[in-house]
Amino acid sequence: MATRESMENLMQQCEDAIRYAQEQYKQSSLQEHYNNDDYTKALFELEETYQDIAKMAQFANSQQRDQLHRMRLQLQELQNNLIIQDR
């Protein structure tokens, strides 16, 4: 079972990655030209966090896995939005 502290840290990492990616998404939609480095960094952070969730799920109980799955879906949706907007 994953410890409460490790789950809280991962959830905070997820929220931070989502917040940063949403900020980059918003900035890119407002500007014709946006900072590619920050946009790419946001995508990288989302992917890294997604991988961390997958690792944590191996050690999680059923309730924690459910929470991780819901967070994973949020990350995937945001990743997809960023990729589609990048085109």
Rank of each mutant, 00 (worst) to 15 (best):
Q79A: 05
A57D: 04
Y34C: 03
A17V: 01
F59R: 15
Q67L: 12
Q12M: 13
C14Q: 02
S6F: 10
I83P: 04
H69Y: 12
C14R: 02
S6P: 04
Q22R: 10
A17M: 00
C14V: 07
T49V: 03
D38E: 10
M56K: 15
L78W: 00
Q67M: 09
Q63F: 12
T40D: 12
E47N: 04
T3E: 06
E15P: 03
S28G: 01
I84N: 09
Q12G: 01
L78Y: 02
A21N: 00
Q74R: 12
K26G: 00
L43N: 03
L30Y: 09
E8G: 08
Y50H: 11
Q74C: 11
Q85N: 07
N9A: 15
D16N: 13
N61Q: 01
Y25L: 15
D66T: 13
S62P: 10
I53D: 01
N81R: 14
S62T: 13
L73F: 11
D86Q: 14
M7L: 15
E48V: 03
L73C: 09
E77D: 13
Y39I: 00
T3F: 06
E47M: 04
Y20C: 01
R87D: 09
E5N: 11
M11F: 11
S29A: 15
Q76K: 13
Q12D: 11
